[in-house]
Design a protein around this nucleic acid. Structure first.
Lengths: 222, 222
DNA sequence: GCACGATGTGATACTCAGTACCGTACACAT
DNA sequence: ATGTGTACGGTACTGAGTATCACATCGTGC
């Protein structure tokens, strides 16, 4: 009886019990008993009761890192980000009903929800780090990297949530559309802002007093 | 001895002890003892050991909701989002060293980090809900609302983190710049005509009261 | 064949967060 | 003065997570 089978059997037992009695209504003793292992072994394998719900998080992070590290040329980088996010989506799709069970749990137990969000933030952090590396030296590089990473993760989550709720038949097509929307946000760099006017006002005076200047400036631009 | 003073004294005692012995090295008994209250009272007031670190979260959420609900006209909505995010920043700035202590804690204790991120997600959710309401009916409205909410929160967090780390002297100016960057992403979307004007304002009081006039003046010029 | 260390396992005991409950002290009303 | 509600502290309990110990298993070397 290999260690991997035992691990999978324990995860299965945990999900079963969570469905039957709820997360808080299930003790680690219950899980260990149904899985046919000792309580000590459970904590040795998973570290905590929460971790049994997110068992493949680390390996998924490693996959993403590998995908991003493989994007060496400028042309392929945007694609690499989208593809790395797609890896996450594919992982969930492959899990099927397990992913939906986890979703139900994270919706109902605040601590689990926080844990899942924190996990997503790790993906985002990975994206941010790599994008920032690519943008190095550009103005507002750090902020733009964060914004892009957040947008990609948000787009991914949007599609994933739709699938988890059973609202879509073709999540991959949704994902493609979402990534188009995301990339469109960043398509034009800071230098291609024709037709856009940005005004930053910082003044202790009443805004009315500067309105004439605002008008004048806008008219002069047009 | 009022309830509010007791609450504040307990929070102060908790932060002191966390600094001295670390979060895990401090028990609720320790906090209660230093604050001069019973253990039961602690849990009655805060609900959990984590909650003593995020004591004003709910009231801040309410402020944001109020600010967003106040943006009734289309013209002031973008500004309302930025101003609501600014409320969060101002809250942290007003906390001063307490906010930095909390930051140190959340960096070092994974459970607290998850909790904080989940809190930020609640802000983001509020933004998303309101923006979605405004966009109702537009193509990809749900996704675009999520993206904009994520961008605003990300921009805010970027500035906040910089201040928490002591990397900036003028976080408000940073925030203005960040919001310009954020709003630029969404200016000139597929639904809007070519000429888009984004204004970021910082005035001492009642920005919301004068902004409609600014916007009206700008529209009148076009 | 047997001694040997390494590793995985289960049982026990412990700390501490969080909950439930109970008695009490102090307010404020009639 | 007496009821009533409320906030408080104390006690006991459940359950997560940690530390420790004893034992079983499994090569590996002799």
């Amino acid at each position: 009886m290999g260690a991997i089978e035992t691990r999978e059997r324990t995860v299965a037992a945990a999900y079963q019990l969570f469905e039957e009695r709820g997360y808080d209504g299930t003790s680690v003793d219950d899980i260990a008993e149904r899985a046919g292992i000792g309580r000590s072994t459970f904590f040795r394998m998973f570290g905590s009761k929460e971790d049994v719900i997110f068992p493949e998080h680390d390996s998924l992070l490693a996959s993403i890192e590998a995908r991003l590290a493989g994007a060496v040329t400028t042309e392929t980088r945007y694609v690499a980000v989208a593809e790395a996010a797609r890896l996450v989506l594919l992982h969930y799709l492959a899990e099927g009903e397990v992913a939906r069970a986890r979703y139900r749990l994270t919706r109902s137990v605040p601590a689990l929800r926080a844990r899942e969000i924190a996990g997503m933030q790790q993906y985002q952090r990975l994206f941010r780090t790599w994008i920032h590396r690519w943008y190095e030296g550009a103005p507002e590089a750090a902020l733009r990297a964060e914004l892009m990473a957040a947008a990609v993760v948000t787009g991914h989550n949007h599609v994933l949530r739709g699938w988890l709720r059973g609202l879509t038949e073709d999540p991959m097509a949704d994902f493609d559309r979402a990534m188009v929307e995301v990339m469109r946000l960043f398509a034009g760099g800071p230098d291609e802002e024709a037709g856009t006017t940005v005004i930053v006002l910082r003044t202790p005076r009443q805004v009315e007093s500067v309105l004439p200047q605002v008008r004048a400036a806008l008219i002069a631009e047009e």
